[in-house]
Design a protein around this nucleic acid. Structure first.
Lengths: 344, 344
DNA sequence: CTGAAAGCGCTAACAC
DNA sequence: GTGTTAGCGCTTTCAG
């Protein structure tokens, strides 16, 4: 029995087969130059000896790691885990491994993670930023020509690829829907994060108000926290408003459900007293009662498209044209916002 | 300006400083042998030149990757994403990166992922298996002395470390609770997966029945699918039973909520007609109405304890004593199962 | 405290 | 088709 500590290398296979290490390497990599028979023998011997390739050595030499880095604010937040699941699957199918990091919605952490990923020489990077004013770290990546795709980001300035939905349009649709349901005082719950996504959503909200002859009233804007599920404090703020809003559009993806629940506990009737709409449609939306109106897009598609675009730009040495992929979304109208029951 | 393609290495720093590469390496790694002043100069120069260490080269030489591999059936399932979030955080804090893989509840995939992780020479492995009859792949890992910790697994035979809750006890507590609420015909929803976790839960259920003088009736066992959220088909099966069960204990972590919802749509009153209890307490449990009774344990703690134990066994060359960590859980009694409202 | 030299395991370039 | 050689960037003895 072999000593378990000793690693089997291609040299061992080469020696056992009286071939050169180069041939072994080629045989194991399905290099077409190699004689089919030779390859078979090589593969069999490798199996027999329990050979396991060493990716480091290979990566060091070939300057290719077949690894992609993913940075998100939090893995367990909204539909993030589903997007990551899709990324992992698509990456795997394309022969890549996935290193996942959380930025915890912190600049420093985000930068550190990107740097660490660079130290790991990932071939490409997928990044969902917590804020928009932190291009520097990614700038470094881009300068170093690491293909990078942003998820859910709209950097006007930066010429960088991204995959996202049309946040302006989606917010516009939600707001219009609420107005069509007869709502006139639409509270808007947003985040303290200076993220372009929230900016776009606000613009969509404002645009819809304007188009329907409603005034934009800053006192109807409620700011929550990104990292915390501040449903209770939000609900209190809403209750204190006078006159009370007759609708809530929560562009903050997480707090909306607990906010709704707290209001219900306070005796608020949803949607009759206050109609509700969230933004991203995640698992809780169709569980909470009444079911929550929200924007749906396929997390699987988001992950898949991002990986495919990334793989494409990793494959060609020259990083491809900058690409902005807009994912289709749809407004899932559910009971939390439907007031005219006859008509819908 | 430097050509962006040329990588800065410690040799460049060495040359610029008239020092040897070895000194640079030591300086960058905070080796105590190095003069403090020299180190400062080295670090400054590295910064100036935009040096980024190359982990591969380092790993190749030092045989340490500071990477841990994680394999789970699905990232977006139950409380998995929260456990992973905690793993990522704890690993990061300890100086490790995390590579995450999904086995998709498939043997082949699981094996392939473990092999790929080994090719990446991860220093340690955390694995939540989909089934129990696939020790082989992990056996290889263990033989190769890669510290491995199983999440939620109870291999009687294998002498391997694990972190989990006491599934038998938890199931026993749930069942007892339902019986205390006056339920006598307790349906048990489980998975087709041959996973020890489900075996333990079944035993706990049976033990509680026995202890309370109730017969174990196989016709009350409903088998669902692990990978799919077969809530609707489960609810149909339940409705067909006659006499109908007066309680449902769903050891299958996912399907229970949609199952409840379907039954509600069919006019079943919960908990009065049928009391409900799930197993793992994930986000949906306190959103669905009535709120779902379930077993809670901290996913943060699960992740943290697993990583800490792993780090410990990676640090000492000799892998430490086999360790089984049992996480405390608690039964979260909620409205879905409470029938005696006065008394609870 | 610093330097010289060797080599981790693999692959690319060039021979034959 | 296969072999030779060199070297990816780093760390690690061993010297001094």
């Amino acid at each position: 029995m072999l000593s378990p500590t000793k690693e089997i290398t291609i040299y061992d296979i080469a020696k056992a087969l009286n071939l050169s290490p180069a041939t072994i390497s080629r045989g194991l990599k399905n290099n077409p130059l190699i004689n089919k028979k030779t390859r078979k023998i090589i593969v069999a011997k490798a199996q027999e000896l329990g050979y396991q390739p060493n990716r480091f050595a290979s990566s060091l030499r070939s300057r290719r790691t077949y690894t992609i880095g993913v940075v998100v604010p939090f893995i367990d937040y909204g539909n993030t885990s589903s997007i990551i699941a899709a990324i992992e699957q698509a990456a795997n199918a394309a022969g890549y491994m996935v290193i996942i990091c959380q930025s915890m919605a912190s600049h420093e952490k985000e930068k550190a993670q990107v740097k660490a990923l660079f130290d790991s020489r990932v071939d490409g990077l997928l990044i969902a930023m917590a804020y928009d004013d932190c291009i520097t770290a990614h700038d470094a990546m881009i300068r170093k020509r690491i293909p990078t795709i942003f998820l859910d980001s709209v950097q006007k300035n930066a010429r960088c690829a991204s995959v996202m939905i049309d946040n302006f349009k989606a917010a516009y649709e939600i707001t219009t829907h609420l107005i069509m349901q007869g709502c006139r005082r639409l509270a808007y719950i947003t985040c303290n994060a200076a993220h372009p996504v929230f900016f776009e959503r606000l613009k969509g909200y404002q645009h819809a108000l304007l188009e329907h002859g409603l005034e934009y009233d800053e006192s109807l804007i409620v700011v929550g926290d990104l990292s915390l599920q501040t449903g209770e404090s939000l609900s209190k703020k809403l209750l204190k408003m006078s006159p009370r809003p007759d609708a809530v559009f929560a562009a903050n993806d997480t707090a909306v459900i607990s906010c709704m629940q707290h209001l219900k506990n306070e005796g608020v009737k949803i949607p009759d007293d206050i109609a509700f709409a969230g933004f991203i449609d995640h698992a809780g939306a169709s569980t909470v009662e009444p079911n929550l109106t929200a924007i749906y897009y396929s997390p699987e598609e988001m992950g898949r498209l991002a990986v495919n675009a990334l793989v494409k730009s990793m494959d060609k040495t020259e990083s491809g044209r900058v690409q902005k992929i807009i994912l289709q979304h749809q407004l899932m109208v559910r009971k939390s916002s439907v007031r005219f029951r006859g008509s819908v």
